[in-house]
């Protein structure tokens, strides 16, 4: 689990790079604040994936006992 949360944390910290970088020279995105949406959507995805991982972990525990 530590490994997984470390991976997710690293992924999260990468996001800052995207937001600061100049991947889209198109000024429309900067002024349109699309990054805000991207961060929100990624957060939702991370939450759902974390939920899947935690479910997996609990199942493993149950299977070991069964």
């Amino acid at each position: 689990m530590k490994k997984i949360s470390a991976t997710l944390l690293m992924l999260l910290s990468c996001l800052g790079l995207y937001a600061q970088g100049n991947i889209t020279a198109d000024s429309l995105y900067a002024s349109g604040k699309i990054y805000v949406v991207v961060v929100c959507v990624v957060l939702i995805l991370l939450g759902l994936i974390f939920f899947l991982f935690s479910m997996d972990r609990r199942l493993k525990k149950l299977e070991r006992n069964a």
């Binding site: 997710l8 992924l11 995207y18 991947i23 699309i34 991207v38 959507v41 990624v42 995805l45």
Partner: peptide, 13 residues
């Protein structure tokens, strides 16, 4: 997880 998040970020950007 990485693929889905990668494709979502780049899907927007």
């Amino acid at each position: 997880s990485v693929l889905v998040i990668y494709s979502t970020v780049w899907g927007f950007l």
